[in-house]
Amino acid sequence: MIKEHSEKSSTLSELATFYIGDALCGLDILQVQEVNKLMQMTQVPQSPECVLGILNLRGQIVTIIDLGKKLGSGKTEITGDTRNIIVNSPDGPVGLLVKKIGDVIQANMNHIEPPPANMGDVQGKYFTGVHETSSSLIGILNLDKVLCIDE
């Protein structure tokens, strides 16, 4: 909702970028609560495939979703670069595990192109659009789609 709002009020917005597999993706920075590298997760047996575990974030229980698994590009290996992007969903914070964090870039929201059928291994339905910079393409994630529960 914040996203729609900002799209209308200002054409310029900032994207937090990160890598899912090899694909460079972005989220409107206003949707991001924080980025951390807490990896002391508690596994939840019988949880959906993409849920890596739960994490104690200052007294709140945060579900961590492996974005690689969720978006279909495969399991994210935990290295020194892996980070959790904590985003706020209607019922509490959710953590998105990404392979690597990129820069924050400015993007003109008027120049967003519709997403292709897929980007790398990631299906197009998870994107709201694609932003092109001089050096790369950034897929802008549709947070609602990413957080929705697969049946």
Binding site: V44, Q46, S47
Partner: peptide
């Protein structure tokens, strides 16, 4: 503490 909605389908837990 309640579990997030992604874990609602796990019936074996009352919370965390």
């Amino acid at each position: 503490k309640p579990l997030g909605r992604h874990l609602k389908q796990c019936k074996g837990y009352a919370g965390a």
